[in-house]
Design a protein around this nucleic acid. Structure first.
Lengths: 124, 124
DNA sequence: CGTCACAGTATCCGAACGGGTACTACGTGA
DNA sequence: TCACGTAGTACCCGTTCGGATACTGTGACG
């Protein structure tokens, strides 16, 4: 587990468990990474980068490492050249699937509503 | 809508709608604020502070303002002394209820599992 | 010998965020 | 006259985060 995740679990009372979810899922690209792995099963580092919007290797690496430390993804290194590294969901990562879907659904509705209705909704 | 929320909606492709949810819900205390407002209906600034773990007024104010700008909470000021300000959920804020619950549930399970099983789970 | 593919690492930067302390407005009541 | 209560605001600080750029290791290929 990441130090940050551990700190959040320790310092927030149990009434704030949602903070834990956000600590784990709330990094750039993380929900997308989880969705893609849920969809494709196994993906290599480069494939993930291409399926996302080409984040810098620095950023993608960090997100994947954090997800790995938090136990959501499994990283498999094949000792060969050129390097080959595969990522897939752990059981814990799979358990987050419905939550990521819920985030996606609500976020999509919210975005659509805001795009359409900023100050325009005739509510009376 | 906050500038940040707007930027997230603009800059992330629709496949990453979950980022929008996290942009809106992902601030210190925000899920807790929404839960409390869902439970109590209406709460004053000071009541919220006491029900949470007494965040500084600075922090609580900012979270509430952001939630207000993002359209999740409604702020009502009563012109009287000493001041009285009430917060309640908007319809949009209520629509986030199930999502916050899902975050809380998964986060709680995750935290419990990590507290119990860090390196201890006998899986074989 | 140089180049390519792949999966990173090293270093740096600016913005954003949480949080701490001090201060404010204003009518009431001792 | 002074403190009280409420709901903040102003100012500052340290950390974290996303991101840009440059560099690395290594075997195969030409």
């Amino acid at each position: 587990m990441r130090e940050k995740t551990e700190r959040v679990i320790r310092e927030w009372t149990e009434s704030c468990d949602a903070e834990v979810s956000i600590a784990v899922l709330g990094g750039a690209w993380k929900p997308s990474i989880l969705s893609l792995l849920a969809e494709h099963g196994v993906l290599r580092f480069g494939e993930l980068g291409r399926l996302l919007d080409n984040p810098t290797a620095r950023v993608l690496t960090r997100q994947l490492r954090e997800l790995e430390q938090d136990g959501l993804v499994v990283r498999t290194v094949y000792q060969q050249v050129p390097p080959k590294v595969e990522y897939r969901l752990s059981e814990l990562g799979e358990s987050a699937g419905p939550l990521v879907e819920a985030l996606t659904r609500w976020g999509g509705q919210y975005a659509a509503q805001q795009r359409a209705g900023v100050g325009a909704a005739p509510s009376g």
